[in-house]
Amino acid sequence: MGRGRPLNPAPLPFFLVRDLTPQDSRSSFEIPFRLDRDAERLEISFSYEPKEFADRKESLRMVAACLDRSGNDRTGAEEVAPQPESFLPLSNLITLSLDREGQYIGCAHRHDPVQFHRIGLEGSSPGFLTVPVLAGLWRLVVSVHCILNPICRMRVSVVARGAKESS
């Protein structure tokens, strides 16, 4: 799935930092992790920075190129002509999705650069199914949709809370 170094399943808790570049845009990578015992919930912290691409001149150039690619009339003669300024600030976008043993649990497709998600039977965060946190092989997939800054630092951690005794 996508580019990026494959990782071995990590035991919990883990904390991962990765620097992403524009070359990572339109790619994804997996973060497999192993849960040895059933738990009450998983807690996933996810963040990346910077969110916004501050180079205004380069942003306007990229917007113009994007509008050209989409066939926009450059004459501005359209009744509702796109206003390049209205698309600023451009921003980086990274999203997380989660599955366990082949069952898709969900995704946090939103633009917040700082996210905290709970997964568990007591209620999961929006975007994720309410499922039991069972021992087994889990997987986060990081979808790197768009990176504009030379470096965008991503941090993700996963913690299991309320570990249950093995039966």
């Binding site: 845009s25 339109r26 691409f53 990229m62 917007v63 994007c66 509008l67 690619r69 989409s70 066939g71 926009n72 796109p82 698309f87 451009l90 921003s91 976008l93 949709h145 768009c146 504009l148």
Partner: peptide
């Protein structure tokens, strides 16, 4: 199908 895509709207085209 023809919405402007990256980096305005990721994957939208």
């Amino acid at each position: 199908p023809f919405r402007p895509g990256d980096p305005i709207c990721c994957g939208c085209t």
